[in-house]
Computed example of a mutant assay.
Amino acid sequence: MSELRPLGKEYIFTSAHFNTVKSLLYQFAGIKLAESKDAMVYSRLVRRIRALKLPGFSDYFDYLQANESEHQEFINALTTNQTAFFREPHHFEVLKRHLQAHPQTKRIWCAASSTGEEPYSIAMVVAEHFGRFNTPIEIIASDIDSAVLKKAQLGIYPIERIETVSDERKKMFFQRGKGAQLGNVRVVPELRQMLQFTRINLVDNFWSIKTPIDIIFCRNVMIYFDKATQESILKHMMLSLAEDGLYIAGHSENFNMFPQIITPVGQTTYKAVKGSVSAKTEY
């Protein structure tokens, strides 16, 4: 990376600036930025610099250190949120079978809910299993990004986002927008009420969530952490998981390097190693 202002760019952005961003994002969220993300970092953070009317990146870093409230804006700007309804559909078949085999299931956590497509997909399967919206299962939807959580709580999406959803589910779980909302759909209120939205940073020592958790969906999140952080989060999650609970990972994730913590029981589906750290009581 050049130490001078990149051609056509309005702010000087140096290797030192990029390294500072990497260090701060790891400090705040445990996320490791790849060296190839310099252009992404520049394009996203200049929006904050402009909004705050600051002269440049160094001034922004000073502002960031002096204003803790900016930490969340910094994290929001740099986290990527890619999701879809019923993405990796085999996991929802796993969920369906688990609900059938474990009628005592009481708590499901979607640990990276993004704009809501994943936790709403979970809620649809739960509602279908019970044949009603009012179920005994608590569904927690969390994310580190407060901005996407607000979008998730609204439950409003462009109609093309539900193209892959079955016609039956479209009729049961979505309302078509009219007037100003023409071209959008909204999740029905009964489905929205099945979810509890909360901001959780996975690298924090305490999570504001009851345990034990019967199923944890944490898909395509661990890839952003280094091995030490992955191990720490996995230990925390296995401590939170019910004795016969499931941990559902993303297609790009593999935890063979942690055989003492977690063991595979299906395609990107895991359980805590017996006798390790599974939770036994609720708090």
Rank of each mutant, 00 (worst) to 15 (best):
E3P: 00
L4V: 10
L4F: 14
L7F: 13
Y11E: 08
Y11D: 06
I12Y: 12
T14C: 03
A16T: 13
H17M: 05
N19P: 11
N19I: 14
V21H: 04
K22R: 01
A29E: 03
L33G: 09
K37Q: 05
A39W: 15
V41P: 10
S43L: 07
R44T: 15
G56L: 08
D59K: 02
Y60R: 07
F61G: 04
A66I: 12
S69A: 10
S69F: 09
Q72K: 07
F74Q: 00
I75K: 01
A77W: 08
A77Q: 11
L78I: 12
A84E: 15
E88W: 04
V94R: 03
A101Y: 04
Q104G: 09
R107P: 07
R107H: 10
I108T: 02
C110M: 06
S114T: 01
E117P: 00
S121W: 02
A123E: 11
V126H: 02
E128R: 01
G131W: 07
I139C: 09
I140G: 02
I140N: 08
A141P: 09
D143K: 00
I144A: 00
D145I: 07
Y157F: 05
P158M: 03
P158A: 05
R161L: 07
R161H: 05
T164P: 01
T164L: 11
S166P: 02
G177K: 02
L182C: 05
G183R: 00
V185L: 04
P189L: 01
R199L: 03
N201M: 03
N201W: 06
L202H: 06
N205Q: 14
F206N: 14
T211V: 13
D214V: 05
F217P: 13
V221N: 00
M222P: 12
Q230S: 10
L234P: 05
L239R: 13
L241Q: 03
A249L: 08
G250T: 06
S252P: 05
S252F: 03
T268P: 05
Y270F: 14
A272S: 13
V273S: 01
K274G: 07
G275D: 15
S276P: 03
A279S: 15
E282A: 12
